[in-house]
Simulated scan of single mutants.
Amino acid sequence: MSTIDLRKKTVGLLLEKKKLSGIVARVGLVLDITGSMRKLYNNGTVQEVVERILAIACKFDDNGELDVWVYDHEFSRLPSVTERDFAGYVQSRILGDPSIHKFGRNNEPLVMEDIVRKYTKEEPDSTPVFIIFINDGGVVNPTKKTLTEAAVHPIFWQFVGIGDSDFEVLSQLDTLPGRVVDNANFFPIADITTITDEELYDKLLNEFPLWLKEAKAIGILR
């Protein structure tokens, strides 16, 4: 079996364990491309992240597509990636594209607002949205307000902190008061290249089932 097939199998087994088999969701990946991430783009770590998250989209999304954004103080909405064209995606679609702003400073609200716009204005749908948000620290404080306002939408935000930052703002997003529903989770990983697929997928899918239940109960999901 290919690596992507093995990862899809691992995700499938975990979905059965968490009673998520049959759940359909649109899946998006947001990648920090600020200056401190340069090494992880150049050494292949980000490409590996894309491939690992793609396995989740293959099991959740009805067309097997993973929507992708990158951001620093600007953002780019990229072509979706599938298991047919993921090889070399980071090099060809991100690093090799001069139109994409790279290695600047953080501004999370801009990209988050575009995500909400895509799934609620441009492509409105009752299908839940599962966003995996990769960041290595330095999140701006207004992100809290953006996340709070987004709680009324059928979007769950799974924030993943990579590296050794203190993740002060990210760690607060999981427990923000004033939201109609808890629409986010956060966990840190010191080195994302050393965590197994099983561990990563288990962490990524830990709170999504709880949100599905709560969002349905208050009418955000049908």
Rank of each mutant, 00 (worst) to 15 (best):
V140L: 11
R38H: 10
E199V: 15
P142C: 08
P109D: 14
G64H: 02
E16Y: 07
L147Y: 03
G138K: 03
K17C: 06
S80F: 05
D67H: 07
F103T: 02
A190E: 15
I4G: 02
Y41L: 04
E51F: 01
C58Q: 06
N135T: 13
H101Q: 10
F103H: 09
R84Y: 07
L20W: 10
P177S: 14
F133A: 02
F103L: 08
L212I: 15
S171K: 13
P209R: 10
K216G: 15
T127E: 07
R77H: 10
W69A: 03
E48A: 14
L54S: 01
R26L: 14
L147P: 10
G178L: 09
Y41F: 15
E16S: 12
K17L: 13
E65N: 11
H101W: 05
S80W: 00
L6W: 03
L40F: 13
S126H: 05
P209W: 13
P188Y: 05
N206M: 14
E51T: 02
I115Y: 08
S21L: 12
E123N: 10
A190P: 07
N42L: 13
E123P: 01
D61Q: 00
A87Y: 06
S80E: 01
N43G: 03
S126L: 09
L54M: 02
E74N: 09
E113L: 06
L200D: 02
Y41M: 04
V90S: 04
P177R: 11
G178N: 13
K213V: 07
T82W: 02
N43M: 05
L29H: 11
G138S: 05
T127R: 13
P177W: 11
E123F: 08
N141F: 08
A25G: 08
L40D: 14
E16N: 12
N106L: 04
N106F: 02
L66F: 01
I218V: 13
R77Q: 09
R7G: 00
T127D: 03
D67P: 07
D72R: 08
V11K: 03
Y41D: 06
V180M: 14
S80P: 11
I23P: 00
L176K: 12
E199L: 14
L29Y: 10
N183S: 14
L54A: 01
D166H: 12
S76E: 05
L204K: 06
D182E: 15
F156K: 11
I94S: 03
